[in-house]
């Protein structure tokens, strides 16, 4: 019996069964890898997006990108969307998870309502908050007027609008962080806490020395998910501000969209795409490596 298993196993197991992932590989290569590599090629051209002819112009688009003041506005916004949302989603998500991990009433209700926005299109979420923040007849300004204050134009103010977008993105996806932290908290064994209680540890000490280190895997996954999501932000910006006023709330995604479709500047849009890829790669990989290193073996 043992001999025959080994024999059959050997002839079959020599193959890596690569044909089983061939369809997946084809999809990914054709719709993601090939366009991306082709994008690098286009970033060295002056293509306008529709004409049959274009010229290779070397690094001109890259020089243009690094000297374009819009690039820095857009990169700064993208970093604020990515890092800002990550920080708020994690702090709030962890706080909610710690609360819901206690024995309290309304647990299921709170979890449902906090998670609900996750399943709504970010575009529609943007519209919903637009009813809240719009200058004319917005719910927020109604409150300010009732309190005898001046109306404020939060979406039109270039110092505030990006933070409103961070807020809406945080509101929408804090439910994911909360659920992941809750799952992490529930996987921490009670024994650790009982041992700590015998040693007379305070609640804060228990959190710092037991909960937090054992939550590191959840922190890693949340940080990486949120950073990638925040840096790619597109839909909610379109519905809240359209990237404006001017380019003040544009992210790299919306900026590229604008360059390609509105300004017919495809070569330059592709160059911005390469920069976006590099920034996302560096940030998400360093977040992954940094937090992985901090994880403890539980």
């Amino acid at each position: 019996m043992a001999v025959s298993t080994k024999k059959i196993g050997k002839t079959k197991q020599n193959s890596s069964l690569w044909w089983m992932y061939l369809p997946a590989l084809l999809f990914v290569v054709f719709f993601i890898v090939y366009p991306f590599l082709n994008g690098i090629r286009i970033s060295f051209t002056n293509w306008n997006g529709f004409s049959q002819t274009f010229d290779y112009i070397g690094f001109r688009q890259y020089i243009r990108m690094f000297t374009d003041p819009d690039t820095w506005t857009v990169v700064r916004n993208t970093l604020i969307y990515g890092i800002g949302s990550t920080i708020f989603q994690n702090i709030l998500g962890l706080a909610y998870a710690l609360l819901l991990n206690q024995s309290i009433h309304f647990k299921a209700l709170t979890r449902t309502i906090v998670y609900l926005p996750v399943i709504i299109s970010p575009l529609i979420m943007g519209y919903i908050w637009y009813f809240f923040f719009s200058y004319q007849g917005g719910a927020l300004n109604d409150v300010l007027i009732a309190l005898g204050l001046e109306r404020i134009n939060v979406l039109g103010n270039i110092d505030i609008n990006i933070w409103i977008i961070v807020f809406v993105n945080t509101f929408q996806f804090v439910g994911i962080a909360m659920i992941i932290y809750l799952a992490g908290l529930q996987s921490v064994s009670r024994d650790f806490y009982e041992a700590a209680e015998i040693d007379g540890a305070s609640s804060f000490q228990k959190f710092k020395n037991i909960t937090f280190p054992l939550l590191m895997p959840s922190i890693t996954i949340n940080m990486v998910i949120n950073i990638i999501g925040g840096l790619k932000l597109f839909d909610v910006i379109i519905s809240l501000t359209g990237g404006g006023p001017g380019n003040s709330s544009q992210s790299m995604s919306t900026f590229m969209y604008d360059l390609y479709f509105a300004r017919e500047d495809a070569g330059y849009a592709a160059t911005q795409g390469v920069l976006m890829m590099i920034i996302i790669l560096i940030l998400s990989l360093s977040a992954l490596i940094y937090f992985r290193r901090k994880e403890v073996e539980a």
Binding site: S16, W18, Y21, A24, L25, V28, F31, I32, V33, Y34, P35, F36, N38, G39, R41, I42, G49, I228, L231, K232, F234, M252, S253, M256, Y257, Y260, A266, A269, A270, G273, V274, M276, M277, I280, L281, S284, L285
Partner: peptide, 30 residues
């Protein structure tokens, strides 16, 4: 767990990071 399969797995995972819009221009053309 062959070498090829381990590489392929890493390849698929790495793709997760690629923002779809970074390849917008050539994808549209395609």
């Amino acid at each position: 767990q062959t070498k090829l399969n381990r590489f392929m797995y890493m390849f698929f995972i790495a793709i997760m990071v690629v923002p779809p819009l970074a390849a917008l221009v050539p994808l549209y053309q395609l």
